[in-house]
């Protein structure tokens, strides 16, 4: 099966049906392993103490929030270049998941910030650009709902999403470009991760679990969106048949002079 074959919604749904149960099992198993490492197999940090455990939720949620936007951007390229409905479906299905994980990253960051920085929130470049990401997600969700025609909505959202990619770049490099309270990159950096393996392993386990969770939720959400579009198409067919049927009834019932 080629990638082109997968672009067919019916074939895609068959694949989802086959893959989803395995993905659910893998996600649950990965979350169990991740939580075991996070709570039972990792030491407290010499500076952060037990609050380091918040990082095992915060960092994967933040990575996923950005990954979700990248997924939306790639889908938007598919929408604009190949005009494929499955790319539209992927972009639309990603937005609420991305918004949820962006909110979680902001919330977990705030509850980590209070004991560590003494404040839930600071107008730091990293935090502010992440707040902008949440607002962008909410705006994109609103736009999907505001435009009734899914093809037109996909086009508008694809352009806005691609313009918004600049914010993902700003989020990534904000800690290098500006003097921020948020610590610089400590995992994906030149020279390798700067975190000790006792903390890095739980972090990586939770990150894998979150990625699997995203894939599961994204496929489930895409399946719903395909169904929603089919229902819309069925309603439109019904609406286009109904006036024709009623007009033929009127024609038959009308007297000969009126015809």
């Amino acid at each position: 099966m080629t990638l082109y074959d997968l672009a067919n919604p019916t074939r895609f749904l068959k694949l989802v049906k086959a893959v989803l149960p395995w993905l659910v099992v893998a996600t649950v198993a990965a979350l169990a392993v991740g939580l075991y490492f996070a709570f039972f197999a990792s030491p407290e940090d010499y500076q952060q103490g037990q609050t380091v455990r918040i990082m095992f939720v915060h960092v994967p949620a933040a990575q996923l929030a950005m990954m979700c936007y990248v997924m939306m951007a790639l889908s938007s390229v598919g929408s604009l270049v190949w005009k494929h409905p499955l790319a539209d479906v992927s972009a639309k299905a990603s937005a609420p998941i991305g918004a949820a994980f962006t909110f979680l990253a902001l919330f977990s960051g705030a509850v980590w910030g209070k004991p560590m920085w003494g404040a839930f929130w600071v107008w730091d470049a990293r935090l502010t650009s992440f707040l902008v990401l949440l607002i962008m997600y909410l705006g994109i969700i609103a736009l999907w709902k505001a435009i009734e025609d899914p093809i037109k909505a996909a086009k508008v959202n694809a352009i806005i999403t691609l313009v918004g990619v600049i914010n993902v770049v700003i989020i990534k490099f904000s800690v290098e470009w500006w003097n921020t309270l948020h610590q610089p990159a400590s995992i994906i950096r030149s020279g390798g991760p700067s975190i000790h393996s006792s903390i890095l392993i739980p972090l990586a386990s939770m990150a894998i679990a979150f990625v699997l969770l995203f894939l599961t939720l994204h496929l489930m959400s895409m399946r719903n969106e395909i169904m929603r579009r089919r229902i819309r198409a069925m309603r439109m067919r019904a609406a286009s048949i109904a006036p024709a049927a009623s007009s033929s009834t009127v024609t038959k019932a009308a007297p000969a002079g009126v015809r």
Binding site: Q50, T51, R53, I54, V57, A61, V111, W112, P115
Partner: peptide, 15 residues
């Protein structure tokens, strides 16, 4: 979790 327990619990509960 000591004196920061509520922050850890809040983060995981929200997740």
């Amino acid at each position: 979790f000591g004196r920061h327990a509520e922050y850890v619990v809040a983060a995981y509960s929200m997740a």
